[in-house]
């Protein structure tokens, strides 16, 4: 008798239409179904009228693909009923809009006629989806301790956001490689051009020699001191040439300290000789 009473009590608990609450023990799960599901994407101005423009989908079929832009609203309405066509409100009724990396979970509200309704402005969810336009799946997740769960992929939607996609930098990501941009060498004239000008410079020297042959020169004043002066001048010029080739300043100065007194000494002798000739 006591056992029968207990059995009746359990049966009574299980038959309460609203099947929320923590079940204390396992009982067979009730079959439920989603009925009268309809959905649409609609502009703000026409959003208040729920009477037309919806696509109806029957469980477990799939709706035709849908595009939602971020100035539109997404609206959806459905009922959840058991096999006796009694409206149910399970613990979990979520609409999940997700791509491989982004996810948005929404909880529909229940209206006075026990219909679940979802009505949201895509722009308001842009932040949660990081403004990532692209293909998403809309699915309905229904679960409760006492019913068989439903996971129904209702439709593929294409979401279009106006804003720039938000990217959160990954701390562990390899940073991009940086290659230093070296200063570009300045553009230089062609070697041919510099050769032509070098030739012009050398030609001037040759012109001087040619003109001398026309004027006529003679070497009547050769003395030992003048030749030695010329030799020391040649040495000084040669030291300067070595400086150009790569000697540093200090070596050059050291060599010059040796060469300069000779030039000074013989130069003075040579000038004295010249002055003597002038006097005569």
């Amino acid at each position: 008798m006591k056992r029968l009473f207990h059995f009746l009590l359990v049966l009574g608990l299980a038959s309460i239409p609203s099947c929320t609450g923590q079940a204390s023990q396992k009982s067979p799960l009730k079959e439920i179904t989603v009925a009268e599901l309809k959905l649409r994407a609609i502009d703000e101005v026409n959003a208040a009228d729920w009477s037309s423009g919806f696509e109806s989908v029957t469980y477990p079929n799939k709706a035709s693909p849908l595009t939602i832009t971020d100035d539109q609203r997404f609206q959806m309405s459905f009922a959840i009923r058991d096999s006796d066509r009694v409206d149910q409100q399970p613990h979990q009724v979520f609409v999940r809009i997700a791509s491989a990396t982004k996810e948005l979970i929404l909880v529909p509200f229940v209206d006075s006629l026990k219909f679940f309704k979802l009505d949201f402005d895509l722009k308001s969810k842009a932040g949660q989806l990081d403004n990532a336009s692209g293909r998403y799946e809309v699915s309905l997740i229904v679960g409760d301790a006492k019913v068989k769960p439903i996971l129904w992929t209702i439709a593929n939607v294409h979401l279009k956001f106006n804003g720039e996609p938000i990217r959160i930098p990954d701390y562990y990501e390899q940073k991009p490689e940086i290659v230093h941009m070296f200063r570009e060498p300045e553009k230089r004239p062609h070697v041919f051009v510099s050769n032509v000008f070098s030739l012009a410079v050398v030609l001037l020297f040759v012109v001087m020699l040619l003109l001398w042959t026309r004027v006529g020169i003679s070497f009547g004043n050769v003395t030992a001191s003048s030749l030695l002066f010329q030799a020391s001048l040649a040495v000084i010029l040669y030291i300067e040439y070595l400086f150009y080739l790569g000697n540093d300043m200090f070596t050059t100065l050291r060599y010059l300290t040796w060469a300069a007194p000779f030039a000074l000494f013989f130069g003075r002798r040579m000038l004295a000789h010249l002055a003597k000739i002038e006097e005569q």
């Binding site: 929320t20 923590q22 399970p90 613990h91 979990q92 009724v93 979520f94 997700a98 997740i141």
Partner: peptide, 12 residues
């Protein structure tokens, strides 16, 4: 994807 954290007492 189907899991959630909520109080047990009433529908979410």
């Amino acid at each position: 994807a189907t899991a959630y954290s909520a109080p047990a007492s009433k529908a979410v």
